[in-house]
Design a protein around this nucleic acid. Structure first.
Lengths: 225, 225
DNA sequence: TTACCACTATGCATATACTCATCGTTGAAG
DNA sequence: CTTCAACGATGAGTATATGCATAGTGGTAA
């Protein structure tokens, strides 16, 4: 979980970093608005904490520009200003939350948890993936179809995981190659077809409805019946 | 945009409803925690505003139960209690934001906008194209006319996608050839006519109004009836 | 060795893309 | 109202692309 802090006062930035790192977050610091904007565009942080008063470009403008550029990372703004007008404009340019300094660290942590929970709840933190009666437990690295356990090798597991993460969506061979095999897709190999075939034999046994579907010319899709 | 207010004090509930309705939201009110829980499970509200102190079941418990039941609607909590501990437990059971009463309405509105913006951003960005009762989902690569699913091959899908992206506009054979076939248009082939014909057979079945129209000498146009 | 895994090679079956010849429609001129 | 030419639609047939089962190779670890 990566957090970007945009704050020019080194003492505050350090205080936040220390506390956040103690809670298991990775923290990077930008010391002005332009630097913050650049870093936010370069890396998909899970959360951005930004001061309003910043050198070179203030926090509000930075947020507005980031939102215009389709960065949808949650943003928590900090400011010494506590008038309702400040808060409103801060939220309206695209911030998700607003705290007035001096901040109490435990309140900040609670807000950080609330913001990061929503953002990644769907993607990362779920230990199990479910499609129909197929359940994949990412922690235990096990899979089950209904009550029947399924034995998977490492590659098979990765492939199934990727398909389940994209359930309902058609995934191309190219993206499978990138995500599961970590390589460029070349037509010179049919590993993907072979592995899909193996998965089918293990998962879509006759009797239960089929989950893995081929979309000719496009790729594959895992879909609940 | 539908908002559920869970609040037992009629004066506050009425104050909020009036303000929110003036801003274009549809509002429903539940007067205790159990009623709120039931309503939140029954209908996919875009936002829930809940008091902490409620009869029959307090707001914190309600939020916790809703989150357990996978309701992921954004929740904004209100409370007379402003100690950091209250705020923290409120956020940690699954609320997204927390305001201390008495609330200033303009601040509340700003937070409401921030919360609903994020939530619907995800849903609306679903990549679907719609023309009349014809719906094309680009992720799933599926198409439907009304409730009838339509099976399309890759080329057919691309052609329909292009026509739908340009709905209401007449597209020439030349531009279709470029965009769908990736080639210069030469009259030496009638593939386009053939594929339009196939699409017609699949989409414009007798009984429903026709969507694909020929503009002689110009090209084709997809238009809602 | 034996067992297992990741990956490759081959050939078949079939869905799909495209071509061609023919037929239908349209609209303006006679 | 006909006739005719230009334009578009369509059905049948062919070629190609695509996916898949199966068998096989090489590497690794117990």
């Amino acid at each position: 979980m990566h957090i970007l802090i945009v704050e020019d006062e080194a003492s505050i930035a350090g205080f936040l970093r220390k506390g956040l790192e103690a809670n298991g977050f990775h923290v990077q610091i930008a010391s002005d608005g332009l630097m913050g904007q650049k870093m936010a565009l370069d890396y998909p942080y899970d959360l951005i904490i930004a001061d309003v008063n910043l050198p070179r470009q203030n926090g509000r403008d930075m947020v507005e520009i980031l939102r215009r550029q389709k960065v949808d990372t949650p943003i928590l703004m900090l400011s010494a200003l506590g008038t309702s007008n400040d808060i409103i404009t801060g939220l309206d340019v695209g911030a998700d939350d607003y705290l007035v300094k001096p901040v109490q660290f435990d309140i900040l942590m609670a807000r950080v948890r609330a913001l990061t929970r929503r953002h990644t709840g769907r993607l990362n933190s779920e230990p199990t993936l479910v499609v129909g009666d197929l359940v994949l437990n990412q922690d235990e690295r096990t899979a089950k179809r209904g009550s029947r356990p399924i034995n998977l090798t490492a590659k098979e597991f990765q492939l199934l995981e990727y398909l389940m993460q994209n359930q309902g969506r058609v995934v191309s061979r190219a993206s499978i190659a990138e995500q599961v095999w970590d390589m460029q897709y070349t037509m010179s190999s049919n590993s993907i077809e072979v592995y899909v075939g193996i998965l089918r034999k293990k998962i879509d046994q006759p009797g239960s409805p089929q989950l893995i579907h081929t979309v000719i010319g496009e790729g594959y899709v895992l879909r609940a019946p």
